[in-house]
């Protein structure tokens, strides 16, 4: 999916720059093929395709901050370059791992929301997988503490739910 959109028009469009405007009003210049990976930007560019000069187009992205965008853009750009070549899946995976390894939990959440809004599905999959990995095989208490989630069950409700499936809470990792 990513490779088909990029490889056909790679040489000509990668020269062209598009301006993205973030939620906090910052303008970021990106290559057109990168911008086309973002669904809202793609739609906007299609609607304004009669505009002769691409440079003049400013695409508003009111749900993404500049900080998040400036992390997303290099990722998408490199990912596009990778998938344009006939590289092994291993390399892409290694690249994804490298990108996600050092992300804080807050950043992970912000990126996930942005990837969801921008329709970058390959990134969304990777991020969701990483988030799931961080709570895999953990106890209920650990997950609540780790993510700072308020327990809104009453003790009775929780006891009842636990009694329904006592085997589900054995053998999880020690915190």
């Amino acid at each position: 999916m990513a490779s088909s959109s990029s490889s056909s028009s790679c040489s000509s469009s990668s020269e062209k720059k598009i301006t993205l405007k973030s939620s906090d009003g910052e303008a970021l210049n990106v290559e057109k093929n990168v911008a086309l990976e973002f669904e809202p930007a793609k739609g906007f560019l299609e609607d304004n395709s009669e505009e002769a000069d691409d440079e003049a187009i400013v695409v508003p992205l009111p749900n993404v901050s500049a900080a998040v965008l400036s992390e997303l853009i290099p990722y998408v750009k490199q990912r596009l370059e990778l998938s344009a070549k006939p590289v092994q899946k291993k390399l892409i995976k290694a690249f994804d791992d490298q990108f996600t390894r050092h992300l804080s939990d807050d950043k992970l959440g912000e990126l996930m929301l942005a990837a969801n809004y921008l329709g970058v599905n390959y990134l969304l999959d990777v991020l969701c997988d990483v988030t799931a990995d961080r709570i895999k095989n953990k106890s209920v208490e650990y997950v609540r503490e780790f993510l700072g989630i308020q327990n809104d069950f009453t003790p009775e409700e929780e006891a009842e739910l636990r009694a329904q499936c006592p085997w589900a809470f054995e053998g999880v990792d020690q915190d």
């Binding site: 959440g109 996930m112 929301l113 969801n116 969304l124 999959d125 969701c128 997988d129 988030t131 799931a132 990995d133 709570i135 895999k136 095989n137 953990k138 106890s139 209920v140 997950v143 609540r144 993510l147 989630i149 308020q150 327990n151 809104d152 069950f153 929780e158 739910l161 636990r162 499936c165 085997w167 589900a168 809470f169 054995e170 053998g171 999880v172």
Partner: peptide
């Protein structure tokens, strides 16, 4: 802050035992 679709996508990577039953008790 994640919407329901996003959160469910995360859960879809978890196996039923023990993770889905544990996450179900969080809130």
């Amino acid at each position: 802050n994640l919407d329901d679709g996003c959160l469910m996508h995360v859960f879809s990577f978890l196996s039923p035992i023990p993770d889905r039953y544990n996450t179900a008790l969080v809130c």
